[in-house]
Amino acid sequence: MLPTHDRYDYHAWPHRAAYAWPGGARLAVYLGVNLEHFAFGEGLGAELAPGGPQPDVLNFAWRDYGNRVGAWRLIELLEETGFPATVLLNSAMYAYAPALVAAHRARGDEIAGHGRTNSERQSVMAECEEHALIADCTAVMAANEGAAPRGWLSPWIAESRVTPDLLAEAGYRYSLNWCADDAPVWKRTRAGRLLAIPYPQEVNDIPSIVARKDAAAQFADMIVDDFEERLHQTRDGLPQVMGIALHPYLVGQPHRLRQLRRALSHLSSRRDVVWITTAGGILDHVLSLPAGTVPGS
């Protein structure tokens, strides 16, 4: 027998229960906007060009453009196209760019946990250290938002073997770490169930633009093609979730923002057949469904 995570069972796609999102839609779409802060001169971080010796000013400044400029341009685009957002927030952003977090709060966007900084990853931490990290991030966010976040995306999608357990024990209701499905699935933890909401590793600007070096138009086309194919697939009656992962230091660059505007405008024009929502909205709807509807329930 191969080692297993034992978090969920295999559920064949054609054998799933059919259900609808609000308004009878079969496709739910949400944007995951990553607001991230990085240590200067040390730690992890995406690279525009191969980094040299630290301090790596080129790549640090390129990422910081997202918080200083790109994220504000992205908010303008969200307003223009009428999209809500799930903000995946490093808790260090409260000290570094509080006005940016406040702008998303003023829009009514969902604020979800995304660790302390993307200069580190949870998967290399001892359980006590990871427990302390989650507790600290949660407390900081609760103090600033008036309520603890319900969702979590680990920096670098990095989990230890006990991350789902620690998240459930800390009161989280959903995780975006597992990209194993097109619809929500309940995962088992030692503290009860935790909803796995699909988060994209394909329609995600980091793998697309940083790893594969896709052009701005290619990434926009990917969004549109993914959307249209999912609409075609949902004719089988089974609901799907389409997430779009965005990082302001990438899509906030003017030439990419123009192409993203084209893609989001296309999606917005189809509101009559899709549900544009947040990850938290998906959680709320799943919680309203009869037991046994969603795998693992």
Rank of each mutant, 00 (worst) to 15 (best):
E42Y: 15
E42C: 12
E42F: 03
G43Q: 04
L44H: 06
G45N: 09
G45R: 13
G45V: 09
G45C: 06
A46M: 13
E47H: 14
E47W: 04
E47Y: 11
E47N: 08
L48I: 08
P50F: 07
P50K: 11
G51Q: 06
G51W: 02
G51M: 13
G51T: 15
G52Q: 06
G52C: 14
Q54V: 09
Q54I: 12
Q54F: 06
P55W: 09
D56I: 12
D56Q: 13
D56L: 05
V57T: 05
V57H: 05
L58N: 06
L58E: 03
L58I: 14
N59V: 02
N59Q: 11
F60W: 15
F60I: 00
A61E: 07
A61L: 05
W62D: 01
W62A: 15
R63V: 04
R63Y: 05
R63P: 03
D64F: 01
D64W: 00
Y65L: 03
Y65M: 06
G66F: 02
N67L: 12
N67F: 14
R68A: 03
R68I: 15
V69I: 04
V69P: 13
G70K: 00
G70L: 01
A71Y: 00
R73W: 09
R73C: 00
R73F: 02
L74Y: 09
L77I: 08
L77C: 03
L78D: 15
L78M: 13
E79K: 03
E79N: 13
E80Q: 12
E80I: 04
T81V: 13
T81E: 11
G82F: 01
G82V: 07
F83Y: 07
P84F: 05
A85H: 01
T86S: 13
T86A: 06
V87H: 14
V87F: 09
V87Y: 10
L89A: 08
L89R: 15
L89K: 03
L89Q: 12
N90V: 03
N90G: 14
N90H: 04
S91P: 04
S91W: 03
S91M: 11
S91Q: 01
A92L: 10
M93W: 00
M93Y: 00
M93S: 04
Y94S: 15
A95G: 07
A95I: 09
Y96E: 14
